[in-house]
């Protein structure tokens, strides 16, 4: 057996591998730069960049709040000197903006409902299937639209749903005249649901994975058919996931821009489209800023109400309601 020299043996002359020496030097440098007594603050130091990024956004909001208090002088195209609440009055008194806000909220509600309705069985089958082929196929199909992006997806829907598109061709085969499937409210909701489905499925899957299979088996041995088991066991136990997914889908839909712009064809504007128009078409920064702040408030209030009634679901990070 070869003799292994002890670590302290003067005969042992060796150099550590280069990679070890580099790592050791880095560690030493780090120890000097960030000594051990600083370790309680390490977490804070690491989230600083993210906090700065969000802080910048808050700064922007304050600036926007400031500009929302000036009206646009149509003669000079400059914002007025004096502070005024006129922009907010315009928004509140305008029937058009009232319709836009109602439409956005209603569409977001419908989108949440239909998305969860479709996502729950999708996620359930993806989680519960015993076939890895089925699971992988469902995952790939789910992720494909992510690579395409919202605008291209909306454009694809324009082609499919157009008067000479696949959908109308199919209707033509059964003798139905081409109908207008685009540029109306259902088209926008359809596009939103299609866009949100992957988000909802990805948020529901962990919640469903957390339900032990044996719990459902137990329900069935206790006399529940699959529908009863789904209603009394799966849905209540998946509630945190449903709320989390609903909040994400709802806020994304409420603030969406591309779907109403492309599939609504200008006739189905959401709040985001109205804001865009004020900033980039009429160049009325003040009115645009007022609309933007109203959207922030509206979204926060809706989310706040939902959380206070149902709890934050999976967004609560396991904290109690």
């Amino acid at each position: 057996m070869p003799e292994i020299p002890s670590k302290d043996d003067p005969r042992t002359t060796f150099r550590y591998p280069l990679r070890w020496r580099i790592m050791d030097a880095l560690n030493n440098g780090l120890d000097r730069f960030w000594p051990a007594r600083m370790s309680p603050y390490t977490g804070w130091a690491l989230i600083m960049p993210a906090l700065l990024l969000v802080g910048l956004l808050v700064l922007g909001l304050f600036e926007m709040a400031e500009s929302s208090l000036h009206t646009l002088d149509r003669a000079t195209f400059l914002p007025s000197e004096a502070y005024t609440l006129e922009n907010y009055q315009t928004v509140i008194e305008s029937a058009t903006y009232g319709r836009v806000v109602t439409r956005s909220v209603f569409a977001a509600g419908l989108t949440v409902f239909f998305t969860l309705l479709l996502a729950l069985p999708y996620a359930y089958i993806m989680v519960r299937t015993t076939s890895s082929v089925v699971r992988k196929t469902l995952l790939v199909v789910l992720f494909l639209p992510f690579f395409i992006g919202q605008v291209v997806r909306a454009y694809g829907l324009l082609i499919i749903l157009g008067t000479t598109g696949v959908a109308n061709n199919a209707l033509g085969l059964v003798g139905i005249e081409p109908i207008r499937l685009l540029f109306n409210f259902p088209a926008v909701v359809f596009g939103l649901v299609q866009y949100m489905l992957p988000f909802a499925v990805l948020m529901l899957a962990p919640a469903l994975t957390a339900i032990p299979r044996e719990t459902e088996t137990a329900a069935s041995s206790l006399g529940a058919n699959w529908l009863q088991s789904f209603r009394h066991v799966v849905i209540p136990m998946a509630k945190p996931g449903l709320i989390g997914a609903g909040l994400v889908v709802g806020t994304l839909a409420l603030t969406d821009f591309a779907m109403p712009a492309m599939l609504g064809g200008g006739s189905q504007d959401f709040i985001a489209n109205a804001i865009y128009d004020q900033f980039f078409r009429t160049a009325d920064q003040g009115l645009g800023a007022a609309l933007a702040l109203l959207l922030v408030v509206l979204g926060s209030v809706i989310v706040g109400v939902v959380i206070s009634i149902f709890g934050a679901g999976t967004l609560g990070m396991g904290g109690k309601k």
Binding site: E214, T215, S221, L222, G223, M237
Partner: peptide, 18 residues
Amino acid sequence: PHRRSIGMVFQKLALFPH
């Protein structure tokens, strides 16, 4: 299973936590 008159106690109990 739900049409058989069988009560079962499971290894992990599988009680309903909600």
